[in-house]
């Protein structure tokens, strides 16, 4: 049970959502956009989160689209993970997010919510970073479409009240060869020890990770090392492991050293799967 009272608003338009946010904010209260609700509800229940007003975006038309428009795949922020997977419009994304939580939760969890998650994993970001996805953000009456990588640094950096409306992907990317691997502590369902997504474009591997550091990332340096065909695969892998952005994570899902062990195996498997093994 959630102990505190809060307002629940379900606007029909982006403008209404923004107005509501501004109004609550101007009153000195705390507002949050609400999509699947899985994190807000569970965290509020254990007193980890407090909010005065939640603004549910699931009735906003722009947030619930999922279609190919010309050469772009447009996915609304309020689309559930299961919807995206079942559409099969972007197999790498579908497969990666299918490994998040359990089936029942994925009926609720949305892609916008997962990108904005308070948890450190945010696995839906991995394929999006690989395919240079863009995001449509709106604040007040101002809409903008920008590369995800320009606003995602460890987490989605948006201004107060700015709403993530859509994710936009060039369809050419959705047809590239890919790999999606995840290792958990034991169960198939769980936070990653390591989760990785990869594609090959123009014979170069692109790879992004979750569970390696305290945030999901794609590293140019790591990719350059892995694509350095002058070196043996094992040399590349060892060098990549030594060139991660930070120390490897050490938490309940796995110790630092164990994660390195899992990461190494996973890199071999991905290189193999992508036809770049020895």
């Amino acid at each position: 049970m959630i102990a505190f009272d809060f307002n629940y608003i379900k606007p029909a338009t982006v403008a209404e959502a923004n107005q509501t946010y501004t109004m609550v904010h101007d009153q000195g209260d705390h507002a949050m956009y609400f999509s699947g609700g899985t994190e807000i509800i569970t965290r509020a229940r254990v007193n980890e989160l407090k909010v005065d007003t939640v603004i549910d975006i699931k009735e906003i038309a722009e947030c619930t689209v999922m279609e190919v428009q010309d050469d772009k795949l447009v996915i609304g922020a309020a689309m559930s993970l299961n919807h995206i997977t079942n559409s099969n419009l972007f197999p790498l994304l579908g497969e990666t997010i299918k490994k998040i939580a359990d089936h029942t939760s994925r009926n609720k969890i949305t892609i916008g919510g997962n990108i904005n998650s308070e948890l450190i994993y945010k696995e839906s970001v991995l394929p999006l970073l690989l395919v240079d996805a863009k995001v449509k953000l709106v604040k007040g009456t101002k809409e903008k479409i920008v590369p995800l990588s320009s606003v995602f640094d460890k987490k989605l950096k948006v201004q107060a009240g700015e709403l993530l409306l859509q994710v936009i992907i060039d369809t050419e990317y959705t047809k590239l060869p890919y790999a999606s691997l995840k290792k958990t502590r034991f169960s198939k369902v769980g936070y990653p020890v390591i989760s990785a997504a990869a594609i090959v474009k123009d014979k170069k591997i692109r790879i992004a990770f979750s569970g390696v550091c305290e945030y999901p990332f794609r590293s140019q340096e790591v990719e350059n090392i892995l694509n350095d065909s002058k070196k043996s695969v094992s040399e590349r892998i060892e060098k990549a492991i030594n060139s991660l952005p930070t120390n490897v994570l050490d938490d309940l899902q796995g110790s630092n050293e164990y994660r390195v062990f899992v990461l190494r195996n996973m890199l071999y498997d991905i290189m193999e799967e992508m036809g770049m093994g020895e």
Partner: peptide
């Protein structure tokens, strides 16, 4: 205790 709930205290699931 670091794993006080089922988020971080896994039990074997149906299918496993």
């Amino acid at each position: 205790v670091q794993n006080t709930g089922l988020r971080n205290y896994p039990v074997l699931r149906y299918g496993e």
